[in-house]
């Protein structure tokens, strides 16, 4: 699903990612672990081009999205992302947060179709070969209704439908992060990238967030997770990448990795954190 080929990233003169090559297959849950400063987060942020890679390619569904000519916005719609700091839109209510992107995308599509239809109608006036119009099945109102219902359904799923009209500043960290996760889900992504989703949470809120992620994992969502929660990585991941110094040093199944790491630095790392 995602092929990463010799990905490199430098900030200023410092090379943070030193040639990463890996493949993320559909349905996989990949956990990325490693000491801080090892480039895990940078790697994850390169996957959806929040950081533009310096060189190398990221083939997502057959398209190299590292290419600057590609319209990245279209591909990002299929890649959800969950941040360490939640990053809910502060000026929007919870419901608006979830609805914003799907609504914008669908309404823009509708507008574009309508505009194209106007041109086709004009063309049809003068040409002998009539072009078919784009089919428009839904009105703006219907789209809004549909997106709203989907958002409410997602909110009900995490049991926060009573917070629909609250602003993010009134929520706890765990609630914010769960809403951030369903905000990503609302776009029906093919893969979700998690950037240390529990690192900014109070200890008693970690569980509710991890439980939601586990649920999604069980439903077959493809995931890439940067995490410091080793127990969680071991439980959920189907593959573990150990990164240090901008490189993938070990790629293994969680059982193998946590019980019998091959790489000396991975051994050292695990002896410190476990």
């Amino acid at each position: 699903m995602i092929d990463v080929i010799d990905l490199r990233k430098s900030f200023g003169g410092v090379e943070v990612l030193k040639g990463i090559t890996t493949t993320i297959r559909e349905g996989e849950k990949v956990a990325i672990v490693g000491p801080s400063g090892s480039g895990k987060s940078t790697f994850l942020r390169c996957l959806n081009c929040l950081e533009d890679p310096t060189s190398g390619s990221i083939i997502f569904e057959g398209v190299d999205i590292a290419d600057m000519k590609v319209d990245i916005n279209i591909h990002r719609r299929h890649m959800g992302m969950v941040f360490q700091q939640f990053n809910l839109f502060n000026n929007k209510t919870v419901l608006e947060n979830i609805m914003l992107a799907p609504l914008h995308v669908k309404l823009t599509d509708l507008r574009k179709k309508k505009l194209k239809n106007v041109f086709i109608k004009l063309y049809n006036l003068f040409a002998s070969d009539k072009k078919p119009l784009y089919e428009i099945k839904t009105t703006r109102q219907q789209i809004k209704q549909e997106v709203r219902e989907n958002a409410l359904r997602l909110l009900r799923r995490i049991g926060l439908e009573d917070k629909a009209d609250a602003y993010p500043s009134t929520l706890s960290g765990g609630q914010k992060q769960r809403i951030a996760i369903i905000r990503a889900l609302a776009m029906n992504p093919k893969v979700i990238l998690f950037d240390e989703p529990t690192s900014a949470l109070d200890p008693e809120m970690v569980k509710e967030v991890l439980d939601l992620i586990k649920q999604l994992a069980a439903e077959g969502m493809t995931m890439v997770i940067v995490t410091h929660e080793m127990g969680f990585a071991r439980e959920v991941a189907t593959r573990v990448l150990f990164m240090d110094d901008g490189q993938i040093l070990e790629e293994n199944t969680p059982d193998q990795f946590f019980t019998n790491p091959q790489n000396p630095r991975a051994k050292e790392f695990l002896s410190k954190v476990l």
Binding site: R76, R77, F83
Partner: peptide
């Protein structure tokens, strides 16, 4: 917070739309 822009971009909104909204 720059995270606001990142979050907007990450859900597939363009730079200008995230900026304005």
């Amino acid at each position: 917070d720059p995270g606001q822009m990142e979050a907007g971009r990450a859900v597939g909104l363009s730079y200008s739309v995230t900026m304005m909204k």
